[in-house]
Amino acid sequence: MDGFIELLFPWEASPLILVGIGGAVLMYGIGLARGGSPGRWRAISFVAGVALFYAVTQTHFDYYSQYLFFAHRGQHLVLHHLAPFLVALSAPGPVLAAALPDCRISGSAHRHAKGFVAKLYRGFQNPWLAGTLFVGLIAFWLIPGVHFDAMLSRRLYWIMNWSMALDGLLFWWLVFARNPAGATPHLTFGSRVLLLTLIIPPQMLIGATLAFSEQSLFDVYDVCGRAFPIAPMDDQQLGGLIIWVPAVMMSMAGVLILLARQLGDGSHERAGDNESVALGRIRQERHGDHGAQGGER
């Protein structure tokens, strides 16, 4: 029992991750309390996504990810595909926005800063760049020399994992974004499906290369010791298969969800509208409150 509880504790506690995840859950909770109503499935999707981010970075899962190649690939599958997929699917924007303190942007410096961030964000959300970054990052961290350094240096290891998580969020956000008036570029149904389809072949290629390779490419696990005895080639083949099969299946899942949404009777769209209306109402009420308080003073 003690052993099991120990597994739930971080192998390397990261204050940044704890604050990030704690902050996201707290804000979501505040947003819900202030009247955000995303519906049960979207709330579950958000919580599951955030919980997965936590599970693969702040439990002993991280230990196995550091000392087994295939567990490391499993960690990246969650960080880059599954967890951000669930978070983006939950479209938590309105709920999180409801939790934000109501501050009006004043002063040109603020406006400039906001404009710059929005421009930068839209730059990253160019679909061609987003797709290239998505598969490019997988490939980059798997260059044997780069991978060796990343597994050996604590700092690089966290940079690698953060880059995967953030890129995953950007990518799936673009795929599932629904609000045409939002900062995220609004892609057509066809472009989204094309984007999800185009990222399949490179991932299959990377996965198959590792699964069929006849030499051990990542000797850092030999040098640093594995979490349990497994033949290096078995470890590498399993890792390759994880890149190949489940990673590619996430594209399929994305296409199916987009298709279901497209075929939906439009009630989703209306629900989305209702939500923005509701958010607007929350905002208005809060302004009203402020006004009333101001009046009393």
């Binding site: 230990y63 000392y67 290891y157 030999d222 640093c224 010791g225 594995r226 979490a227 349990f228 005895p229």
Partner: peptide, 26 residues
């Protein structure tokens, strides 16, 4: 070992009580 980003683990003991230890080879 954690400081130098390596690990070690102990295998199951055989009939004679011998067990293997996996560790860094660098």
């Amino acid at each position: 070992s954690r400081r130098y980003r390596t690990t070690f683990s102990y295998g199951e003991a055989d009939a004679d009580g011998f067990y293997e230890v996996t560790h860094s080879s660098g």
